[in-house]
Design a protein around this nucleic acid. Structure first.
Lengths: 221, 221
DNA sequence: TGTACATCAGTGAACGCGCGTTCACTGATGTAC
DNA sequence: TGTACATCAGTGAACGCGCGTTCACTGATGTAC
């Protein structure tokens, strides 16, 4: 997860000798900007990224052997962004119920506010390097965040249940909320986001939404 | 929803004079075959469909003014296929609980067995003709099928609740199940499909899965 | 019944586009002497 | 301190590909007379 300059505009000065690897970061950052501004993962082409950085397309091959490698690096970066969003949302919340709810809301908000990133992570075809075992993949950390939040809630409420399994059910449902609204924003009379999230939490862990909760308003509104 | 000949193989004989509109059906059918055999909506290009039918690409323009029009027609056809699958699954089941469960299972099975069709319906970008009001769109009928099944279950069990709202929650969760497994079949240790579905139904309508149900096995296994 | 012709189904070549990738290269710069 | 040079960051032109779409066309066939 990186933040650099605007990209479009001032023409780039080449990296100093020995520092060519800086371009790698610039590329990932430019890709993130494209995902954000276009809102779709389809904009993630080698040539578009090169344009955004201000270099010729073949220069990318100094840093990535293939387009798939670039996309994989961008996905890892996006996973970091998502993970940060979840951590930020839960920071300072001590009540496990509120923390779990904040985690789920942050997940959905990330997806709806950064659909390009979300598509790369969970929707667009991804040519994963088979050398990376599933257990070590960057998405693992994000999911662990949800498992922990679910488990903390379960432990606090003395309920039975496997945190991993329940977290899976919750995650899948949250993904449904996000991906359908990304793909078909106007084909259905969507209820408020928080209502959908709370229905998942009520059903899967028996977490009733707070009665006069300010968060019950549409978070994106 | 149509079923015609294989497409690949014997060379096509042109339609009789005055029957050029038959090509329209052939095109939709060829597109469906492409979606089925490739498993992805990306294979749905004008040229690929023309190849599958055995005509030159420009011939399509006699039937569809634009690629988007063809895709829209294919989507309508796919919705019919999905609707038929749901009806077929519920036919002859009188118990509203069993019918609802069968409906949800059939929905997920359709998506996982026909990922190309499913992508067209709910995932791939779709340039919808704005003249079609959402209420008249072909997907409406499919969703109504689920609403009815939910409502019948609610009525039978004397529970309170809005069938439309609950059906929305269920649909979104089912979509999460299907779309994640389509997009990331190997990135996660997926539990058996029926377990995911039953977790949704238990959570959203309190429908406990049958205890010694043969359907509890993985339906795709 | 025979024939001319308008109509209709479908074609072939071409357009411009953006894509990923390859290739031989350029020119600035740090370093060795 | 000066200079030759190897190294390194990055380039420009080109490749072949498949795409949606346009255009002028061909040739079979039903129909009017």
């Amino acid at each position: 997860m990186h933040q650099l300059q605007t990209g479009t505009g001032a023409k780039r000065t080449r990296n100093r000798r020995g520092e060519g690897a800086r371009l790698r970061v610039e590329l990932i950052d430019a890709a993130a900007r494209l995902l954000q501004s276009s809102g779709t993962a389809n904009s993630l082409t080698l040539r578009a990224v090169a344009r955004e950085v201000g270099i010729a397309a073949p220069s990318i091959y100094r840093q990535f052997a293939t387009r798939d490698e670039l996309v994989e690096a961008v996905a890892a970066d996006s996973f970091e962004r998502l993970d940060h969003a979840l951590v930020r949302a839960m920071t300072g919340i001590n009540d496990p119920a509120a923390a779990l709810r904040a985690c789920c809301t942050a997940y959905c908000q990330f997806g709806l506010e950064h659909p390009g990133h979300y598509q790369i992570l969970f929707i667009a075809p991804l040519a994963l390097d088979p050398a990376n075992r599933p257990q070590q993949r960057p998405g693992q950390r994000v999911f662990a965040r949800l498992v922990d939040a679910v488990q903390a809630y379960i432990d606090a409420h003395g309920q039975p249940g496997d945190g991993f399994q329940i977290a899976t059910n919750v995650w899948v449902a949250l993904h449904g909320i996000v991906s359908l609204q990304i793909s078909r924003p106007h084909s259905f009379p969507w209820p408020p986001l928080q209502a959908l999230i709370d229905a998942v939490l009520t059903g899967q862990v028996g977490l009733a939404p707070p009665q006069h909760d300010p968060h019950t308003r549409e978070p994106n509104g």
